[in-house]
Amino acid sequence: MSTIARVKSLPVEGLKKALWVASIAAAVLLVAGPVYMLFKYSISDSTSINTGGAPIPLWPYHPTFRCFTYLFSDSQFFGVITNSFVIAACTVGMSMLLGVPAAYVLGRFRVPGRRLLLLGLISVRLFPDIASVIPITEFFIRFKLQNTYTGVILAHTLLALPYVIFIGMSAFEAIPDDLEQQARVMGANGFSVFFRILLPLSIPGLVAAAIYTFLLSWDEFIFAYFILGLGKISTLTLFLKQKLAFSPPQNLLAAISVLLSLPVIVFSLMLQKYMTAGITTGSVK
């Protein structure tokens, strides 16, 4: 703000400021409003939903955690959460097992044609999920992987692997060459250098990749839906979709939604740095 402008026209400055505060408020409302609504519904009692024609209150008449206690006492729901957890954990394991060695090579060696290689590695992800899910489901049907944990885990690994490779690669790249050379001069072979120097130093990045993978699998819907259908093995997202079809109480839907998104929101905010870096370099969808 130039002093000349301020002296010349104070009312204009005031108007500008008001406009500016209003736009922040609008932006915050735009983002936080829906999140608040979700939370509000999840703690609503039934009279705050079935109001009999009166407008739905902006804060429940009788806030309650009943929906959550109900869900946790429901054995079907418990099974669903376990499924989601197991599938996500296995996806993490498999993605890291495949992705970390690849990230190591891409991050520490000058591989000829690296850019082309990277493009080749991510190109399967350039297909829309809804387009690649049909071939993969058909393939899994042929090899009896439909309706199996293995099938979903394989599919989720496919989705997560490019991210693991990218995040891991930049973690390995960030380690100064001096450290690796120093270890070599001190007599360490490639194996020791990797396990005693490079791996410990890239742990923060690799943990981020692992959490990212976990979340990706945890809230994945399309592949789970095609591969598992609404069959025997259900995940959280499939459970929510299933409930939606039978128009259940809205507070229950919201409670499931909260449980589905809470870990994602918490960890995503923790991993902000990695998420934003990924987006701005265009490596994240």
């Binding site: 829906p34 609504m37 929510l240 939604s257 589905l260 994602v264």
Partner: peptide, 27 residues
């Protein structure tokens, strides 16, 4: 950080929320 939250909410959850908010007749 707040502005990043929508990205962290699973698409299915956002869709469910809109499903509830735009309910007929009483959303």
């Amino acid at each position: 950080s707040l502005f990043l939250v929508p990205l962290a909410v699973p698409a299915l959850v956002t869709a469910t929320l809109l499903f509830i908010l735009f309910d007929y007749p009483g959303g």
